[in-house]
Design a protein around this nucleic acid. Structure first.
Length: 814
RNA sequence: GCCGAGGUGGCGAAAUUGGUAGACGCACUAGCCUUAGGAGCUAGCGGGGCAACCCAUGGAGGUUCAAGUCCUCUCCUCGGCACCA
């Protein structure tokens, strides 16, 4: 083998061979699994954009490829599929811009993506490819919706929702970035309109609690906890007293939510959100109704952003003519409306405790309301004290610690303990063309009628114009022969629902479809689900923390509840992939002209080099900047691998018996251990550096046992499958290296027979020496003290103390 | 404001979890080789110092024979949530 490393030849050759031999085919069914354990490795499937891949995209795919190759060789049955998340606005906008049908655009982009991915030699089983826009796929997305509807978890609502004027559609809370549309950046408006909603909040407690069972990055779990926003508090009722109509309105009450019932004695006023429903009922009781109305109108006009900016000067209006009676001490408190209280959270009303809440404090200062200390420990003349302490000025409760008082005070006033969440219901309809039709029919007589299961899928009609209607309705309203149907119940005239599902629908269950991709009789067959579920390893971007990853968990739990799946959580382990930035440190984007195309890198350096480089760049979950300059390192590494194959082939026998050989063998076994553990832990950068160290030693050693070299090729093959396959065959093997067992390390050989002992004098490293492994403590200590370097520091003095750390170090204290 | 992840050479980063700080790689310097460029090979490469040595993991203290790692305080960067009672 005198030829030099020609990556193009090697890579295209083996990609052809692998395809021919179908080595990446998933074992067909559980019966074929031969009792082996399974490992389901999943990438977050991409949205096939028109721009193609840049070098950042494949990073996660390379990692799952390497990981699944490692698991396969370690004896697992692997499921490692790929597909396309192709519904949604970007595809639609691309289609509008390029004047082609969305379905055509998707086909074209998918073909391009696949072509680019295939250059990398990934071990996907393409027979299981799925596409969310495929009618055979979205039939089941619609089926899940019908189940949600059946169980009362999908419902119509007319509440004001977030409307993006740019995208011309309603959005869910999760689709917002602050008060802007996450996609286009437009400031969203509140718009009352008919919407389909999903009751995700019914699952809030389970979504929160089960996070603890997951092997996910702490940051993602924490982001979900924040998003769900659980807080425990109490509901407390304040009796309303009015100057007018005393007799008639005795039962008026204001219920507030508070997490600090212990501070009830310090409440000096109450505040209601301007949108609070009771206000209209109290119209007759409120003496300054005009003023109140004016304030409410003003608030309606303001955007969310203006209203919720923190640190904003507090505004509000006192309701004249009514008071609220503090149930703890009978004090009559003024009631305000103010926009710092949010209608959607809690009960939309609060008891204000200015002494112990910073917002109430600011409001009380401005409106010159009394500030009454009821928790000791702060200085309320300066600022609100929100910390822990003991109750004061609280009747019989004075002296009680805060934690205990929460429950006691609540009970005392007949309140209820209550848990609230920040999570809001999922706004599930979009007024756009390119999404799954919501499978519902509106009948004048029967109301909302679900499309019968047997009529699924409700196919998206082909249309000429799919631009948004501009009226807030989906463009589908104009497709009369699609919209007008007979009611499945009464056979009368009826209309189809024209809203479509959000982009997130298809991706909320796709991991199940890969298990049983062509099943037309069920979402997924029981036995297959039993074998392959749940996903063992899921890899993707952290940007999905509070969108896709919450929705998918919600749907999965629902599917569990209706008996469709066997596991409580869909993704056992999650790994975040860190972004690859451009060389200029910005995000890679056409806009900045800093995009690196993987095709070019593969052409110049080869797929294996690209793969090794991306895994070597740094910690996997960390973002780092691309550097074409640095890619030469991995390329040199592979060339060295290539070069040394020749030697391994030539020298069939071990040139034996030197201690050098023993050292190399020790390193070899250490390397197997290290690489195996590092791949399992997703520490690919150190796995590769470990292989580089071994290769450097192998080169220096001037001999190489074929066995050791072949073992090394196996360690490398998850990262560089083409070159290792070539060399594996070059050495006379005729199997695929992918089907070979992963090398095992020998624990006894990991430990070399000499120990390297470090000697410290007064905490500073002064010398190092080697001594046989058998040496005992005293032997090592005296050997250490005999070293001239050490004696120089110790001198004539008798050491105060000599510490021996087994097999590691001697520390001499003077 | 609350929560989370971080801060180590010119650069990307390692550090067996308290035990040689900077492995591995890039860049750089010198030499060899080459008609030359490139590639390759050899050596060097945190700072100071001729050297012996000294200093150095954002900063300040502390615990310890020994601290990048543990504790207290503090500064900065990135990410999530945020008038959520």
């Amino acid at each position: 083998m005198t030829k030099s490393y020609d990556h193009k030849k090697v890579e295209s050759k083996w990609q052809r061979e692998w395809e021919k031999a179908e080595i990446y085919k998933t074992p067909a069914s559980p019966e074929a699994s031969q009792g082996k354990s399974k490992c389901y490795v999943l990438d977050m499937f991409p949205y096939p954009s028109g721009e193609g891949l840049h070098v950042g995209h494949p990073k996660g795919y390379i990692a799952t490829d390497a990981y699944s190759r490692f698991k396969k060789m370690s004896g697992f049955n692997i499921l490692h599929p790929m597909g396309w998340d192709a519904f949604g606005l970007p595809a639609e906008q691309y289609a509008i811009k390029n004047k082609i049908q969305p379905q055509k655009a998707v086909e074209k982009n998918v073909a391009r993506f696949k072509e680019q991915l295939s250059l990398l030699g990934l071990n996907y089983d393409w027979e299981r490819e799925i596409n969310t826009t495929d009618t055979k796929y979205y039939k089941w997305t619609q089926w899940i919706f019908l189940k949600l509807l059946e169980k009362g978890l999908a419902y119509e609502s007319y509440e004001p929702i977030n409307w993006c004027p740019g995208c011309q559609t309603g959005l869910s809370n999760e689709d917002l970035d602050g008060n802007n549309c996450e996609r286009c950046g437009s400031l969203v408006e509140k718009k009352p309109m008919r919407q389909w909603m999903l009751r995700i909040t019914d699952y809030a407690d389970r979504l929160l609690a089960d996070l603890d069972t997951l092997n996910w990055p702490e940051s993602i779990k924490e982001a979900q906890r924040n998003w769900i926003g659980r807080s425990e508090g109490s509901l407390i009722r304040f009796r309303i007293k009015s100057n007018r109509q005393k007799e008639k309105r005795e039962n008026d009450e204001l219920e507030v939510f508070t997490t600090r019932p212990d501070t009830l004695f310090g409440s000096t006023y109450c505040v209601m959100a301007p949108e609070h429903k009771l206000l209209d009922e109290w119209k007759d009781l409120i003496e300054n109704w005009n003023e109140v109305e004016t304030y409410r109108e003003e608030m309606k006009k303001k955007t969310e952003i203006e209203r919720t900016a923190e640190g904003k000067e507090k505004t509000g209006v006192k309701l004249l003519g009514i008071t609220a009676k503090n149930p703890a001490n009978g004090e009559e408190l003024p009631v305000f409306i103010a926009d710092y209280v949010l209608a959607q959270y809690g009960t939309g009303a609060i008891m204000a405790v200015p002494a112990h809440d910073t917002r109430d404090y600011a409001f009380a200062k401005k409106f010159e309301l009394p500030i009454k200390e009821v928790i000791s420990g702060g200085d309320i003349s300066e600022e609100a004290y929100t910390g822990d302490g003991e109750l004061v000025n609280s009747g019989n409760f004075s002296g009680m610690p805060v934690a205990e008082a929460k429950k006691a005070v609540t009970e005392f006033v007949g309140g209820k303990l209550k848990t609230t969440y920040k999570l809001r219901e999922w706004v599930f309809s979009r007024q756009r063309y390119w999404g799954e039709p919501i499978p519902v029919i509106h009948c004048e007589r029967c109301g909302v009628v679900p499309v019968p299961e047997k009529d699924l899928p409700v196919k998206l009609p082909e249309v000429e114009f799919y631009e948004p209607s501009g009226t807030g309705e989906s463009p589908l309203v104009n497709i009369h022969d699609w919209v007008n149907v007979k009611c499945p119940v009464c056979r009368g005239d009826a209309k189809r629902e024209t809203n479509t599902m959000p982009q997130w629908a298809g991706s909320s269950w796709y991991y199940l479809r890969y298990i049983d991709p062509r099943n037309q009789d069920a979402l997924v067959s029981k036995e297959k689900e039993q074998y392959w579920s749940p996903v063992d390893l899921y890899v993707g971007g952290a940007e999905h923390a509070t969108r896709h990853l919450i929705y998918a968990r919600f749907w999965h739990k629902f599917l569990y509840d209706i008996g469709a799946v066997n596991y409580l959580e869909p993704f056992n382990r999650l790994q975040n992939v860190g972004l690859i930035m451009a060389e200029d440190g910005r995000k890679m984007s056409k806009r900045w002209g800093n995009v690196i195309n993987p095709d070019d890198i593969v052409e110049t350096y080869g797929a294996d080099t690209l793969r090794v480089y991306e895994m070597f760049m740094g910690p996997f979950d960390q973002s780092s900047a691309w550097s074409t300059e640095s890619i030469i390192g991995p390329r040199r590494f592979l060339e060295k691998v290539w070069k040394l194959a020749e030697r391994a082939k030539r020298k069939k026998e071990k040139e034996k018996s030197t201690t050098e050989n023993g050292k190399l063998e020790t390193l070899y076994h250490q390397t197997i251990k290290r690489v195996s553990e590092n791949i399992e832990d997703f520490k690919f950068n150190t796995a590769i550096s470990g292989m580089m160290i071994f290769l450097n030693e192998l080169e220096k050693a001037e001999f190489a046992s074929k066995e050791m070299y072949e073992g090394f090729l196996k360690l490398l093959t998850p990262f560089a499958p083409h070159i290792t396959e070539e060399l594996w065959h070059e050495l006379g093997n005729d199997t695929f290296i992918y089907n070979e067992p992963w090398p095992a390390f020998d624990q006894t050989k990991i430990i070399s027979d000499v120990m390297s002992i470090v000697v410290q004098v007064n905490g500073k490293m002064r010398a190092m020496f080697e001594i046989g492994r058998g040496a005992g403590e005293e032997e090592v200590k005296s050997a250490a003290l005999a070293i001239p370097e050490v004696r120089k520091w110790v001198g004539e003095n008798e050491p105060k103390k000599v510490i021996y750390v087994k097999e590691k170090l001697v520390s001499v204290v003077l």
